[in-house]
Design a protein around this nucleic acid. Structure first.
Lengths: 337, 337
DNA sequence: AATTAGCACTGAGGACCACGGAGTGCCAGG
DNA sequence: CCTGGCACTCCGTGGTCCTCAGTGCTAATT
């Protein structure tokens, strides 16, 4: 039903449309691609492709434009991920090399990805839920407050102030800290609740309120609140594109972090590139955009996602190459931290 | 030269233009404002205002539009900051109330301000340079690395990993931590370098490399690197406006954090509202925007700035009111932390 | 049976033009 | 000093025409 040549025509349509942003007609296609047949033949193929829903006409007597379904086929079967040039790879290395802490790694990564793809880049902070506790620190602040700092093995730091305890003896804080670390350091975050369950029973009754307060804040900050943090860059690149939806809708969607997190999260196949095209994105404002995302992590443990948002009419092979390459490098950098 | 009525006309022109986004003519002005004179008289006044450069005509036989100079006069002499409504104030309180840590306070503040003003909001993290050290924590990570966490009195937390030290004894880390805290906790950040100057001399010679490494990272993270962090929200609100400069230029300028930091920093009068109009902003891409900014802080000590970026054609009284109110509330919240 | 050349048809978009309307500047009279 | 009146200017709108890229169809060719 779709023979080789029809697929070649579809590929050519996608490539030309991505380049020119104008509906592509049979004549110009025959000119620019070595298909070896005449425009008339191409027209016949186009009719078939249109009947199957891979391309569409904005109006009669205009060229053809790929549909979401057409892009889908293109991505799945007609293109391959384009590896980065040596220069680009060197740029990544030097760009990410100088980062000193997690915040900076993330900040640089997102800018880098936006620059490489000339689109909007998204980087999610390494997930809390899949990492383990490296260390818990309790710091008595002046007065009646304690600051709790939790450090995970992915370099992420969570801090929280615990208040309203009355005066707390420094010795008590010391004991509590030691006990806590003995109980949970090295533990997977998911196991923390169980691990601390019987701790209050082990402290002297008069110190129990403090212990309970600390534990409840700990649990809240680690387990209950697994809102993930994300960072954006390159929104300026959107201005160059003209969307079916208004630019405003797209920008609004991008500011809704929860939406983005969900979208990134819906990858089919972990540790692989995922491409969601147009209406495949459930969010209204992103109907005319595509999202290319990938997992990154240390070893083969996935920690979080990075991704790129652009018009459906984007350079898929190039974008996919950039996303994949950056994801790998970030993983390496994190492993070295 | 500029009598009362001419000023009233200018005020009316600004207000109408802000509302309608269309050049305002003498007739509609006479209709909508109780100036008590005829359109012809208003025309004469307009000629005078135009000669002085406060308003301009996009083309002959069109209405008048305020110039940057006109807005300047309006802001300085013809308008007053508009206090928020009770409902708005309640919204601020409930919105900022639930924040648990500094990151969240900042994140909520910026979203709030963007929503109140329907423009782009900027919030700068509390400055490191003006705060003091609350506590320094050294945490031996597994192996040969140490994590350093510095907590300031403004709730800000800086963390850094120190690597490549060889195996470090836990006892040494303990001593170092105590010594460090004795030396610098409570100290103003600017005084930290002096305060730690002679610390290496106090440790045993064999531990000196560790101490030196820790100190150099400390100094680097606190003093040398006083890049300030900022956060944006509400960029989607820009899409509704049509700028003289392209939207892309504005978005690009907004992504250059260093530019924004400089712009915010150039407030005339600390602890007061600052308004920079159009070409008063040195940055190319922001020539057709205005920036309203204010300091916030605890007590009368200014810690950082917040601000709003919008078209020169903005509702100055309302925006100024929102910025001022939010700045105050954030100060209160920080003080209570 | 598949491909191609030829041809009539279609619709978008640009150039051109006429016109209505909002606004101005100026002048003469209150 | 203010105001009504008036001639003038220019923008924006809507209509018409024309071009042009591209299509679908049919008949001829391989």
């Amino acid at each position: 039903m779709l023979d080789e040549r029809k697929l070649a025509v579809l590929r050519a349509v996608v490539e030309d449309f991505v380049n020119t942003n104008e509906p592509v007609g049979s004549r110009s296609l025959a000119d620019r691609h070595p298909l070896g047949v005449s425009p008339a033949t191409i027209r016949n193929d186009m009719v078939a492709l249109e009947e199957d829903g891979y391309i569409a006409q904005p109006h009669t007597s205009a060229g053809r434009v790929p549909t979401d379904k057409g892009y889908r086929l293109f991505v799945d079967r007609l293109s391959s991920v384009k590896p980065l040039s040596a220069a680009e790879r060197r740029a990544i290395e030097s760009f990410l090399g100088g980062a000193v802490d997690l915040d900076e790694i993330v900040a640089r990564t997102v800018r880098l990805l936006a620059q490489l793809t000339r689109q909007v880049a998204i980087v999610q902070y390494p997930s809390l839920t899949r990492s383990s506790v490296q260390h818990v620190e309790l710091v008595p602040l002046g007065g009646q407050r304690i600051m709790m700092v939790v450090i995970t093995n992915t370099g992420r730091v969570e801090q929280r102030v615990i208040d309203g305890l009355g005066v707390v003896d420094e010795k008590v804080v010391d004991d509590l800290r030691n006990m806590l670390n003995r109980a949970i350091s090295g533990k997977h975050l998911g196991d923390v609740p169980d691990a601390v369950d019987d701790l209050p029973a082990q402290v002297a009754p008069e110190d129990r309120p403090v212990a309970v307060a600390v534990l409840s804040v700990l649990l809240e900050s680690l387990v209950e609140r697994h809102e993930e943090k994300i960072v954006l860059a390159g929104t300026a690149n959107l201005a160059a594109v003209d969307f079916a939806a208004s630019l405003r809708d797209v920008l609004e969607a991008l500011e809704e972090n929860m939406v983005l997190i969900r979208l990134l999260g819906e990858a089919k196949d972990p540790s692989m590139l995922t491409v969601r095209i147009g209406a495949e994105n459930f969010h209204e404002g992103l109907r005319s955009t595509s999202i290319v995302s990938a997992d990154y992590g240390v070893g083969n443990q996935s920690l979080a996602k990075i991704g790129v948002v652009g018009p459906t009419r984007m350079d898929y092979p190039g974008t996919m190459g950039a996303v994949r390459a950056v994801a790998r490098y970030v993983g390496q950098i994190l492993a070295g931290q």
